[in-house]
C-alpha cells in the first residue's frame, strides 16, 4: 500500500478555522482534494456543507473560488474552463500552465436541483473535476431528505423513514460516457487520493467523483465514529468503491467478505426505527447490487 505521508504534498491549502461540524469528514476531504490538485486550481463551489470553509470570511482555502447559487456549480466549471481556454489562446494565461478546475457540491444540489446543470456539463464534456459530497440529505438546512437519502432513513422530512430508494448518481454520470467516474469514501484515503491524481493527470474532459461522507449531525452517530461508519459502509457493501475509466468499470477495493449490513446500520440513529423486514430488504438489495457489480469487473 502506498504511503500517503511520503507522496502527498506537504503544503497546506486548506487551513484550520473552517466552520464545519465536529466530526465532519469534509475537512479531511477538502484537505486531500486541495493537496492533490495544488494551488494552481480554481474552485466552483456549489450548495453543500463544504461551502462553509470558503463562504465565511476569511476563506479557509487558499485557492480562488466562486459560489453562484444552489444548482449551477457544474455550469460554473464550464464557464471557468471556457474562459481559461480562450484566455490561453489570447496569451493572457500562459499556454503551458495547467489550472485544475474543480467543483464541490452536495447530494441535493448535484442530484436534485442541479441535475440538469450537472448532466449538461458532463454531456458537453467540459473540462473539470466534479466532487459530489454525498452526506445523503439536505444537511445545511437541517437534515431534509434528498433524492440521495437511502431507503428507510429518518430525516426531518421523512419522520417514519424514507420510502424510496437512493438515486444512483454515479451510474447516471457513467451513462454520460465521460472520461472518468469514481466513487470514493473518507474511510479509504489511499483509494480516494490515487483516483484524484488519476483524474488530474488525464486530458481535458469532465470527471465525476461521488464521495460517501458520513455526517455525525444528520446520521445521528458520535462525532468520533466518522471513519468507522465510513469503513463499515464499504465493508458491508452498502457503499462500493469503483471507478469507470473511459468506459471500463473496476472495483477498486474489494472487502474480503461482506459484513452484515446491520453492523453499519446499528451505529446510526437515522436507522433506529428499522424493522427486521426493512433490514432484510436492504441486505437483499446489497447482494443483488454486489453481484451486478462483480459482473462489471473484468477480472
Amino acid at each position: 500500500m502506498r504511503n500517503l505521508a511520503d507522496t502527498l504534498s506537504r503544503s497546506e491549502i486548506f487551513r484550520s478555522g473552517h466552520a464545519l461540524c465536529p466530526g465532519c469528514p469534509g475537512g479531511m476531504i477538502f484537505r486531500w482534494i486541495t493537496k492533490a490538485l495544488g494551488k494552481d486550481s480554481i474552485l466552483s463551489m456549489g450548495a453543500t456543507c463544504l461551502a462553509l470553509p470558503t463562504g465565511i470570511y476569511p476563506s479557509s482555502v487558499e485557492i480562488p473560488s466562486i459560489y453562484i447559487a444552489m444548482a449551477p456549480a457544474p455550469a460554473a466549471v464550464s464557464g471557468i474552463s471556457a474562459a481559461i481556454k480562450v484566455l490561453k489562446r489570447k496569451g493572457r494565461i500562459r499556454e503551458d500552465r495547467k489550472i485544475n478546475v474543480f467543483a464541490i457540491s452536495g447530494d441535493g444540489s448535484s442530484g436534485d436541483i442541479g441535475m440538469a446543470s450537472l448532466s449538461g456539463a458532463a454531456e458537453r464534456d467540459d473540462d473539470g473535476i466534479y466532487f459530489c459530497f454525498d452526506n445523503e440529505a439536505y444537511m445545511n438546512t437541517g437534515i431534509q431528505r434528498s433524492g440521495l437519502t437511502p431507503q428507510f432513513s429518518w430525516t426531518t422530512s421523512t419522520l417514519k423513514g424514507k420510502v424510496e430508494k437512493k438515486k444512483d448518481l454515479p451510474r447516471i454520470m457513467a451513462a454520460h460516457d465521460i472520461p472518468y467516474v469514481a466513487t470514493v469514501s473518507v474511510g479509504y484515503p489511499e483509494d480516494f487520493i490515487s483516483k484524484i491524481e488519476k483524474a488530474r493527470d488525464m486530458g481535458p474532459g469532465f470527471k465525476y467523483f461521488h464521495i460517501h461522507a458520513p455526517c455525525p449531525t444528520g446520521w445521528r452517530f458520535p462525532e468520533s465514529k466518522t471513519i468507522e461508519v465510513a469503513r463499515l459502509a464499504v465493508e458491508t457493501g452498502f457503499w462500493t468503491l469503483y471507478e469507470v475509466d473511459h468506459g471500463s468499470t473496476r472495483i477498486t477495493y474489494q472487502p474480503p467478505k461482506l459484513r452484515p449490513v446491520m453492523d453499519y446500520l446499528q451505529l446510526q440513529g437515522r436507522f433506529e426505527g428499522l424493522s427486521d423486514g426493512n433490514v432484510r430488504e436492504l441486505q437483499r438489495g446489497i447482494h443483488e447490487k454486489w453481484e451486478h457489480q462483480i459482473t462489471l469487473t473484468p477480472e
Partner: peptide, 16 residues
C-alpha cells in the same frame, strides 16, 4: 442546457 446555466456560465467566465 438551460438559461439558468447560460447565466451561470456567463458569471463564472466573466469572473475568470
Amino acid at each position: 442546457e438551460s438559461e439558468h446555466s447560460a447565466m451561470a456560465v456567463a458569471i463564472a467566465a466573466q469572473a475568470t
